[in-house]
Design a protein around this nucleic acid. Structure first.
Lengths: 134, 134, 134, 134
DNA sequence: GTGGTCTAGACCACG
DNA sequence: GTGGTCTAGACCACA
């Protein structure tokens, strides 16, 4: 596990997990949270690969998926930029959140938790975390 | 995708996902929900493999992990049985639930959702599902 | 795990381990410790199998090995008896102890412990157990 | 029985014993003894399988258990590496040693040896081995 | 019959 | 190239 900032994005790499997924998620997160503004440039494939000391192909794959999701755009000779469409980002964020929550509820259901148990449990865990984060 | 019951367990196999994980999860779920009672026999490796039309090694791998988690015990020459320890099952269920919820909260956090947003969102989704399941 | 006495022998059966080995070891232990006297009768195969609720073949296998080691003798129509030779028992006990200790020292060596470390560690653990047993 | 070095690890394979256990123990031993440094690469699954002339699946199984014990980490596309955490290795070493010694003391107890006998016996055997190893 | 180990060889995901 | 998953089928130990 290593942690570092490149541009305005914080990267935390765990070599036991697929690298391209981690890069994808961390850039996606930075965009969703507004840590990189709309229309901003993100690091070039080769720069990011160099800084993280990983294979450019791995970074490329993450970038392709970002572009496929409409979160970034390539501009010839200039680099890769976050989309300027606030709406696009917001839509994507909601779709992903819905996917996350559906998966989570299915997991809890498979363990035999009732919806009221799940609601109580989530509330309790959120309260714990709020103590840390506020 | 096929669905079938073997013994008292419902199996739903998707051949595009790791088979041993699906078997693991579905038996785990049946134990957690009490669909298989404590101390009960689960299908033999060979029987399950034959019914699901997959390789015994794949079933074996799932069974080994169930045993590592303390949810089952093997009796040589007799078969594989759910643990008799209610406590063991309950502990495992809670640990797994905690893991699921932590992962989920981290995902939502990475999308920039505030805790109150998450709480409201979960509540809404649970209400939707309650309509279906009651 | 079940525990019970049959004759003067205490049996503790763990179904995840080879049953015949456990029976073998527990009778051997009773003989080595003198819990069954020299020349004494031990339970019949069928009695032991019935009491422990296991297959007679499994008990038989343990009894065959006891006899091969010279610790027991079968007498036609009378049953199985511990050897009358005190020397035989003592020799066997020492051989087995030597095997145990050699295996143990090899294990510790494989973990990179020096002999002085091993000696100190054993002493410490024995002191802990002495507290319990005296 | 064959003996050979692959990388910095000495392998001694006995085909009458479970191969994956022997590989597991021999790599574990090399890590515990510091014969492979922290963070070092160990042979790839395929390489080791080829050198030992056994099936890659057998090697893989040993590697999976090493990883479960936290002694190694896999980096996709790069290979398998010893953990960088000195603490993890040391903890594991002590846990395993404790398991070995407990098992040994139980064995000696089952033969009816008193603690003072055991202590004396261990000392004697260690002295014999010290003569060989120094 | 049960589970445990192993081989040979395939195909996939990842870097 | 690496590790991950799977199949087909063998042989063994145990009950």
């Amino acid at each position: 596990m290593q942690e570092q900032r490149i541009g305005s994005i914080r990267f935390q790499i765990d070599f036991s997990q697929p690298l391209y997924e981690q890069i994808l998620e961390q850039i996606r997160s930075a965009i969703a949270k507004g840590e990189i503004g709309l229309g901003q440039k993100i690091p070039s494939v080769r720069e990011l690969a160099h800084e993280l000391r990983i294979n450019p192909n791995t970074v490329m794959r993450a970038y392709q998926e970002l572009e496929r999701d409409g979160l970034t755009e390539k501009r010839r000779g200039q680099g890769t930029f976050v989309t300027s469409s606030k709406e696009r980002v917001e839509t994507f964020r909601q779709e992903l959140a819905a996917r996350y929550i559906d998966a989570f509820l299915s997991q809890m259901e498979s363990l035999g938790y009732s919806w009221s148990d799940v609601a109580a449990y989530v509330k309790k865990k959120i309260d714990e975390r709020s103590g840390e984060r506020g």
